[in-house]
């Protein structure tokens, strides 16, 4: 008999309390009627109302979404290429440097990536003249660079888990390499590509440090706006904003979870079918 792991269950409860008490507290205080963010002053939704009429915040949200969609899309294309390159091409000149280049940004402290990118962009503006000003373009370029390596990691780990003879089989059946990529490799890794895009999107949407360095005047993304607000302390409208964001992410994750559970059930059913087919 397996014993009930009492200690482990206790730790799980403690851990989840640690995870969620701050978030729940923040959500509760977003309905605080008082101007003082930490003193309860009755239930109110006025911060949500003021948030929704705040043009500055809405503008920042739109800008963040625009940058996130663009950079996630480019990062997915480049990251998928990089993941395929490192997983499928075993020997090419400069492979060691390449594999270093696709792992280093993952662990490089953001401050360093930030000042390094900033210096690059200033020098580019100085000597090439493009991008002339720091703003959406420079932020997007920086986001593409550091989120593409997350995509390539996901794609790479998916590829090493799939049988590479299916690609040879397609070639054997008359497909040229490009058709193999289109018919076989890309469909097979499509779940990885989708989750890569989502991750790149989230990373871009969430980034403060690198954006802070590479952005220019007038280009205020949502995290930068929040950053400038919270540096001044706790305010009730940020509580409301945070609550909305947590809810959106929560709904997204729940949907993803339901899809995953369904997929798992389908796999069980398929295994059953395969077993019955035997008879």
């Amino acid at each position: 008999m397996r014993q009930r792991p009492v200690f482990l269950i206790t730790m799980l409860c403690f851990g989840f309390a640690f995870f969620y008490i701050p978030i729940l507290s923040m959500m509760v205080y977003s309905f605080n009627g008082s101007r003082l963010a930490t003193v309860w002053g009755g239930f109110s939704v006025k911060w949500y109302v003021s948030l929704l009429s705040n043009r500055q915040i809405l503008k920042a949200v739109m800008l963040s979404l625009q940058i996130a969609v663009t950079s996630a899309t480019f990062a997915t294309i480049l990251g998928t290429m990089a993941g395929i390159a490192i997983a499928r091409f075993k020997t090419f000149r400069g492979r060691t440097l390449f594999s270093g280049l696709i792992t280093a940004p993952l662990v490089m402290p953001e401050v360093i990536t930030g000042i390094a990118s900033l210096m690059l962009f200033i020098l580019m503006a100085e000597y090439i003249g493009w991008p002339a000003q720091r703003g959406v373009t420079t932020v997007t370029l920086a986001h593409i660079t550091f989120s593409m390596v997350f995509v390539s990691t996901i794609v790479h780990s998916r590829l090493v888990q799939t049988d590479d003879s299916i690609e040879e089989a397609a070639m054997d059946l008359g497909s040229r390499p490009w058709q193999v990529m289109k018919d076989i490799t890309l469909p097979v890794i499509s779940p990885a590509i989708v989750s890569g895009w989502l991750l790149a999107f989230t990373i871009s949407l969430d980034d403060v440090v690198i954006t802070n360095f590479t952005t220019g005047p007038g280009t205020t993304t949502l995290p930068i706006l929040i950053w400038s607000k919270v540096k001044l302390g706790v305010t009730p409208d940020v509580n409301a904003l945070a609550t909305i964001m947590v809810c959106i992410v929560g709904i997204g994750i729940t949907i993803a979870g339901i899809i995953l559970t369904r997929a798992e059930k389908r796999r069980d059913l398929d295994a059953q079918l395969a077993y019955q087919a035997n008879k």
Partner: peptide
């Protein structure tokens, strides 16, 4: 044409 050891059927 080849029949692969792993069969290499296209899973999708």
């Amino acid at each position: 044409n080849m029949m692969f050891q792993s069969y290499a059927l296209f899973p999708h």
